[in-house]
Design a binder for these strands. Structure first.
Length: 503
RNA sequence: GUCCCGUUAGCUCAGCCGGUAGAGCAUUUCACUUUUAAUGAAGGGGUCGAUGGUUCGAAUCCAUCACGGGACACCA
């Protein structure tokens, strides 16, 4: 790469001029002794003083110059550190001889990271500021920042150069702070419940635990392909077989599918498995989990999400088949009859594959008529067995499973069920998936014989759940694209020559 | 994968009935010691996403491609 842009060249010249003046433009340490937020907190009493200043207090603060107002022999600058923004007042006569004119005015500019020392005072306009007596450059920025007022708007630039987005937009930093808190709180919530955090393989010989296309990678020494995991489910259940009674894993899954506002090739989920429990216990646990999150995040229970509002005090529960009529408005005599569902879908001018079985068609009806209407948190329970290859059958109604999914703002947030632990039933369902795969469904589950073997040693009755962390953070931060809750969302390469074109 | 929209200076954006590129901020020079997107004056800065076509002439019209955004499809 080259740094030949006119502004960059100018700034490199300034860095060299600093060196020529005996100043290292990349200092190797800082004497900072407080943060900007602490400065504001500690000195807020100055507003009540007679002369609104205290020359006996002295602070050293570091930050990036975000704004520069030069007025001859004095200047006001805004510098920003992680904790906040501070105005500093720099006047010629408070600095060493010639420093203001020769170094400060000529060689230091917006984007540079500086360290300043001085005493606190309140300006005539009523802003708590730092009266600077010492100024030192810590880091010279040789690329100019985006425009001070509009910042950086171009979404492509924001995602590709997230650091610029973070520098220019404190709200973006806030979103990712919340994301970090969510993950931290999630971990603490499950640990407090006695769950053990585990790490299972990311590279799988068989990509199992979900219906999805995997990424393929290659192990050179063994000469074999591996799949980046699409779900940790089958490994976590092996651990339940092994005797751990409550385990969770927070980590990435990888799915080789399309990208859009709710799908990134790698995404973060928590999956947890709890022995001697059922999906009903998980509904209770999930409600507790949300209570816990809202308490500790200090968020109101009613959150805006675009044009709508989500009420997190209003969790409801309804069976899938019932939701088709009650919420979806599908006639009651249609929902349990394959032919009538096909007719109904056709009547709505929707494509209906004749090859689908009843359970799959009910899933279609749900996706079409119910899902988008589930704004407040809703547990949809008792999924048909045909679309739940890993869930335990309901004792009374074996065509259904002891399963739920949680929907918020029309989106799936969590998927949970009482786990299937009958090894022979599991084997049959894998075989069913194999048949589906043979007949063209390339996202049907792979047979995992080792997993069936594990089950054959006996897995305690267990309930398991997965929660999509990215989508959860979207709900909590009022973001509508998964890219806005991922620090570095997947992007196509800018220069197609960088990535080999096989064709 | 389909459709729609976008891509112009470092950034934010105008310009688009075809006549060879503009503003604000930033930058450079000058003035200015309490400003709040500071202000005033002067200057520099562009392969108008890429390639091809139409035309005397293309940022502007057409085609293809790339990247991004949105919708749909697919997908839990």
């Amino acid at each position: 790469m080259t740094f030949d842009n006119q502004y960059v060249v100018q700034r490199i010249d300034k860095a060299n001029a600093l060196r020529a003046a005996g100043i290292d433009p990349y200092a190797n340490h800082s004497q900072r002794n407080t943060t900007i937020q602490k400065f504001h907190n500690v000195n807020s009493d100055l507003f009540n003083l007679e002369d609104k200043r205290d020359e006996h207090r002295h602070y050293t603060i570091a930050g990036r110059i975000m704004l520069y107002r030069l007025m001859g022999k004095a200047s006001f600058l805004k510098i920003e550190d992680e904790s906040g923004m501070l105005q500093i007042y720099v006047a010629r006569d408070n600095l060493p001889e010639n420093f203001y004119n020769d170094v400060f005015k000529k060689l230091i500019e917006v984007g540079d990271i500086i360290e300043v020392s001085g005493y606190p005072f309140v300006t005539q306009q009523g802003e708590l500021s730092l009266h600077v007596d010492t100024l030192k450059i810590l880091t010279k920025a040789i690329s100019p920042l985006p425009e001070k007022f509009h910042g950086i708007q171009d979404k492509e630039l924001r995602y590709r150069q997230r650091y610029l987005d973070l520098i220019m937009n404190s709200q973006v930093r806030k979103t990712f702070q919340i994301r970090s808190q969510v993950i931290s709180l999630t971990r603490r919530f499950f640990e407090d419940k006695g769950f053990l955090e585990v790490e299972t393989p990311m590279m799988h010989p068989i990509a199992g635990g979900a219906n999805a296309k995997p990424f393929v990678t290659h192990h050179n020494a063994l000469g074999i392909d591996r799949f980046l995991r699409i779900a940790p489910e089958l490994y976590l259940k092996r651990l339940i077989v092994g005797g751990f009674e409550a385990v969770f894993e927070i980590n990435r899954n990888f799915r080789n599918e399309g990208m859009d506002a709710t799908h990134n090739p790698e995404f973060t989920s928590i999956e947890f498995y709890w022995a001697f429990k059922t999906y009903k216990d998980l509904i209770i646990l999930t409600k507790e989990y949300f209570e816990y999150l809202f308490d500790h995040l200090n968020l109101p229970k009613r959150l805006p999400h675009g044009d709508i509002e989500i009420d997190f005090d209003c969790f409801t529960e309804i069976e899938l088949i019932e939701s088709l009529t009650v919420i979806g408005g599908v006639p009651a005599d249609v929902v349990n009859n394959k032919e009538k569902i096909l007719d109904y879908l056709r009547a709505q001018k929707l494509e209906a594959k004749v090859t689908l079985n009843l359970g799959q068609l009910q899933g279609e009806l749900f996706d079409e008529f119910v899902e988008a209407k589930l704004i407040n948190p809703t547990f949809i329970t008792h999924y048909p067995v045909e679309i739940s290859p890993l869930a335990r059958r309901n004792d009374a109604r074996p065509e259904l499973t002891d399963r739920f999914e949680l929907f918020i703002a029309g989106r799936e947030i969590a998927n949970a069920f009482s786990e299937l632990n009958d090894p022979l039933d599991q084997l049959e369902r894998f075989e069913g998936q194999m048949a589906a795969k043979d007949s063209g469904d390339d996202e049907a589950h792979e047979m995992d014989e080792d997993f069936v073997t594990a089950l054959s040693y006996g897995m305690a009755p267990t309930a398991g759940q997965g929660i999509g962390i990215d989508r959860l953070v979207m709900m909590l931060t009022n973001q509508h694209s998964i890219r806005d809750v991922l620090l570095f969302p997947a992007m196509k390469p800018l220069n197609p020559n960088q990535q080999g074109e096989e064709e």
